Computed example of a mutant assay.
Amino acid sequence: MGIKLFGEVFLTLLVITDPPGMMPIFLALTGPLSARDRNRAAWQAVALALGVIVVFAVAGQTLLAYLHVSLPALQAAGGLLLVLVALELLTGKADDPEQQSSTANIALVPLGTPLLAGPGAIVATMLFVQRSTGLVDYLQIGAAIVAVMVAVWLVLRFSGVIVKILRPGGIEVLTRIAGLLLAAIAVQLIADAIGSFVTAYLNAR
C-alpha cells in the first residue's frame, strides 16, 4: 500500500506542478537575471512551495476553517495573482530593469505560490492526508512531495541551457507566450472558483 500511495501522490503532484510547463514561465520571469540569481530563484521557489504544501498537508483544514476561507476563495485569489503577473509579461513591464522585482520576490510570487504550491497541489495533498490511516502512509506522502519538488528543481536548475540557446530575442518571444499561458491559467482558476461558488450556493438552497 505504501509504495502504491507514494506512486499515486508523486504522479498526481507531478502532473499538477507540470515542470516542463513551468519552464517557459520560469525563464520569462528570470530571463534578465544572472545565472546565479536564476539558480537562487529556482531553489527558493521550490523551498517555498515545499513549505506551503507541507503546512497545508498538516494543518490545512484547521487553518482555512480558522480564517473562514474556502478552497474556491483560495483558488480565486491565486487566479487574481496570476492575472497581475500575466499582464506584466504581456505588456513588457517584466523586461523593464526599473520594474524588476528582487530574486526573492520572484521566487515568492508567482513561482513558489500560486504556480508550484497552487490550489490544485494544496487540495490534492490535503485529500491524500485525509485518506491516510497511519504513520507509514504519512511518510510515503512526505517522500512523494519531496521527490516532486526535487524533480521540479532539477528542471528549473538546468533551464539556463535553454537561455543560452534562445538569446535575448528568443527570451522576449518566450515572455509573451508565457504571459498568454499564465493569463489562460488564471482565467481557468477563477472560472473554476466561480463554478464552485455557484454549485455551493445552489446546493445550499
Score class of each variant (00 low, 15 high):
Ile53Thr: 13
Leu189Gln: 11
Gly179Leu: 01
Glu8Asp: 13
Gln61Pro: 09
Pro72Gly: 06
Leu116Arg: 04
Thr17Glu: 12
Leu74Met: 15
Leu14Pro: 05
Leu127Gly: 03
Ile145Leu: 13
Gly92Val: 01
Val9Thr: 10
Ala65Leu: 09
Ile141Glu: 09
Ile16Cys: 09
Leu74His: 06
Thr62Asn: 12
Pro72Met: 07
Pro24Met: 00
Pro114Glu: 10
Ile25Gly: 06
Leu116Gly: 05
Gly92Ser: 02
Lys4Ala: 13
Gly21Ala: 02
Val150His: 01
Ala65Phe: 04
Thr199Phe: 08
Ala107Lys: 02
Ala147Ser: 11
Leu154Arg: 01
Ile141Cys: 00
Ser34Thr: 15
Gln100Ile: 06
Gln130Pro: 07
Trp43Thr: 02
Leu156Gln: 02
Ala94Val: 13
Ala184Cys: 09
Trp153Cys: 00
Ile194Val: 14
Arg40Gln: 03
Ala186Asn: 05
Leu29Cys: 11
Phe197Glu: 01
Arg176Thr: 12
Gln130His: 13
Glu88Gly: 15
Leu63Tyr: 00
Ile171Pro: 01
Ile194Tyr: 11
Glu8Gly: 04
Ser132Ala: 15
Ala73His: 07
Phe197Pro: 06
Arg131Leu: 07
Thr12Lys: 10
Leu14Asn: 07
Pro110Met: 11
Ile190Gln: 03
Gly134Trp: 01
Pro20Gln: 03
Val150Glu: 00
Ala28Glu: 06
Ala45His: 07
Gly31Ser: 14
Leu82Lys: 06
Leu89Tyr: 04
Leu135Thr: 15
Ile194Asp: 09
Leu84Tyr: 09
Trp153Asp: 02
Leu29Ser: 11
Ala200Phe: 10
Arg205Pro: 03
Leu5Arg: 05
Ala77Glu: 10
Gln140Trp: 14
Thr199Glu: 09
Ala183Val: 05
Ile194His: 08
Phe26Gly: 08
Glu88Val: 00
Met23Glu: 02
Arg167Trp: 05
Gln99Glu: 15
Phe128Ile: 13
